[in-house]
Design a protein around this nucleic acid. Structure first.
Length: 597
RNA sequence: GCGCCCGUAGCUCAACCGGAUAGAGCACCGGAUUUCUAAUCCGGAUGUUGCAGGUUCGAGUCCUGCCGGGCGCGCCA
């Protein structure tokens, strides 16, 4: 409906050549907005104020000429000039009724924009390292990414969802070693477990389930012979130097253990342990996400980049262009030339390529696959990567702006008023799976995206569980269930909805609550557009709450199943439309719309 | 120290490229059910939008400085 008004303003401007120059670089659409206050009409345009300076005219004068040029339109019942120069539009009831019919005609396609061919969007999200189950922080990335993907799709963009599986490199060796050690332990071979290893209980489960046949169980002495000591935990009052030193010791110990594991289990044996561990964890992650209603189009394996030499190819391209340079035995990428703070190593002195090298190759690969716009959803701690990955894209011949990074702030879990610690390696984290079991998928999906992604999220489990009836997600779902019930009741009472009759009597929906509700419904397409533009699914959350609040008010004030069939069918038409929009909005958020509660 | 994000009612948060009187929920108080689900509705209070300047017809929103919180600043991933 907003576009309807914007188009009228546009047409009016076309009839005013004296304003043409001033209007040149102004999007008329952006001047039209819903009013906050009903006394300002349904829509307002601030175009007269915006044009005042470039046209060198008084805003109210401009407003007057625009209004005169509008002419008569059946959709508009009244136009007023108010305040410093706002043009207020009052839409006719028939305009709202047409919108209502459009909802009934389109069903859950209502509000969806026509499909666009471009830009093709590649949405990468979660991409949690496959070294353990997803924790509650990943849950936020998953919920935000999934909802954002749905919102973008609803806004017409082609969206491809991808999870980057970091299944190559050192951490996989540490994972394999951790599992190997737990397997030894189960065979009575006890070795001090490395502090830098993965210590979660799931490691033992994996050790118990994987196929270990043909791999020899060594004696403890064989494992420990010549091993350095593990570094101690940091004391709470440790200085930075002590922390660095401890960490170096822990790293040395785990490195040595990895080498020993490879040696004792054999190259192929260790490889089998590592791959099985990876597969086990990945299967768990996939299952977890599927249950959470999060689907991906592709699980992009880092091994597929290293295995096919695509990282080398990318580096070769940079080499050819003379971009890379050598220093201290390492190969550097001059990120500072592309706006980053410092230059970055791509190949270490020991010949091992860095994570950044695969990042360059991966993002290059995304563009090469034909995606025009890349969106990465990352945890807030990754903000340091923005500049360098954009730099990498530019060096590979694309635009830094092809990549958009949406940062998601941290989640803090509270239980019993206590902040909970979350760390994968220490094994004390709370998993997404546990959270879902406690509060349910719907509440979890909803809570995760209720707040702006750039706000910290405090997740209070006590509130989410013990007071779950006050949960806004139920408030919205309840509206859907109530409507479903009304339709059921109608048919039970022999008052089945006659849709055609309802459509013919929408003029009887004259109550204040009903008019507000119709107006709220008509906002839905604008909300989709806005949420997509701002990458802000929470816009939809707030909208649904408002919409449903109008519904509950109307429902309480006016009985639906009245004897007057015309009024009854009209009200049923209104509620059918509400049901459609609520179901559609909840589907975008990944929340179910139950018919019964 | 440098960089990024955040700061709005007692609490948790909204506020559409800057727009009219900054809005919701929770909590608190009072009321509503012989009537389609009371997981509901109706009524009631709350603001120096962290502070100080600046730009503008107009600033929670943009700019500068400061204060407070989070995160990052590796030849880790």
């Amino acid at each position: 409906m907003k576009h309807l008004v914007a188009n009228l303003v546009n047409d009016a401007l076309a009839r005013l050549p004296e304003l043409a120059e001033a209007t040149a670089d102004l999007s008329v659409d952006s001047t039209v907005e819903r009013t906050r206050d009903a006394s300002h009409g349904d829509f307002a345009s601030n175009i007269a104020m915006r044009l005042a300076k470039p046209a060198k005219k008084n805003p109210r004068e401009i407003a007057t000429s625009v209004v005169d040029a509008l002419g008569d339109n059946p959709e508009i019942s009244k136009v007023e000039i108010a305040g410093p120069g706002f043009i207020n539009f009052y839409l006719s009831p028939s305009a709202f009724h047409a919108e209502l019919k459009s909802i009934l005609d389109s069903g859950t396609d209502y509000g969806r924009q026509p499909k666009k061919e471009s830009p093709r969007i590649l949405l990468e999200f979660i991409s949690a390292n496959p070294t353990g189950p997803l924790h509650v922080g990943h849950g936020r990335l998953a919920a935000y990414g999934a909802s954002l993907g749905n919102v973008l799709e609803a806004a017409g963009f082609p969206v491809y969802r991808e999870y980057y599986v970091n299944d190559a490199g050192r951490q996989m060796d540490i994972l394999g070693t951790s599992v190997w050690l737990r397997w030894l332990e189960s065979g009575g071979v006890v070795v001090p477990f490395p502090k830098a290893g993965y210590r979660g209980g799931y490691i033992k489960d994996i050790a118990a389930e994987i196929d270990i046949s043909g791999i020899e169980m060594p004696a403890a002495e064989a494992v420990l012979d010549g091993m350095p000591l593990d570094g101690p935990e940091d004391a709470s009052d440790a200085t930075q130097e002590e922390r660095d030193a401890n960490k170096a010791l822990r790293e040395t110990y785990i490195e040595a253990l990895v080498k020993r594991a490879v040696h004792l289990a054999g190259d192929t044996g260790f490889d089998r342990i590592r791959q099985q561990s990876l597969e086990s964890i990945l299967a768990d992650i996939k299952d977890d996400l599927a249950e959470f209603g999060v689907t991906l189009d592709k699980w992009f394996s880092e091994q597929s980049l290293t295995g096919t030499g695509r990282i080398d190819d990318a580096l070769a391209v940079l080499e050819e262009r003379g971009i890379l340079y050598k220093k201290d035995g390492a190969t550097w990428f001059p990120a500072t030339k592309f706006g980053d703070e410092k230059d970055r190593v791509v190949v270490r002195e020991n010949g091992v390529k860095t994570y950044f090298a695969s990042d360059i190759a991966y993002h290059f690969d995304k563009r090469e696959r034909g995606f025009d716009h890349l969106i990465d959803i990352l945890g807030a701690d990754h903000h340091g990567y923005m500049a360098r990955v954009k730099a990498g894209l530019e060096a590979m011949g694309y635009q830094g702006d092809d990549l958009e990074i949406e940062l998601v702030q941290f989640v803090t879990l509270y239980r019993g008023g206590e902040k909970m610690q979350m760390s994968t390696r220490s094994g004390e984290f709370d998993t997404l799976r546990q959270l879902r079991a406690e509060i349910g998928n719907d509440a979890a999906r909803f809570y995760y995206v209720m707040r702006s992604n750039d706000q910290h999220l405090d997740f209070d489990l006590d509130v989410a569980t013990s007071q779950s009836n006050d949960n806004p997600v139920y408030y919205i779902q309840y509206a859907h269930a109530r409507i479903a019930r009304v339709f059921q009741k109608a048919s039970e009472a022999g008052m089945s909805w006659n849709q055609d009759n309802g459509r013919g009597h929408l003029g009887q929906l004259t109550a204040t609550q009903e008019k507000s509700l119709i107006s709220a419904l008509s906002r839905y397409p604008e909300i989709i557009e806005l949420a997509a533009k701002n990458r802000a699914p929470q816009t939809l959350v707030h909208y649904l709450r408002d919409l449903v609040s109008d519904f509950h008010s109307s429902y309480s004030a006016h009985k639906v199943l009245v004897d007057d069939a015309n009024l009854r069918d009209a009200r049923l038409a209104l509620y059918a439309a509400v049901k459609i929009v609520v179901a559609s909005g909840l589907a975008i958020l990944g929340v179910s719309a139950p018919d019964e509660m």
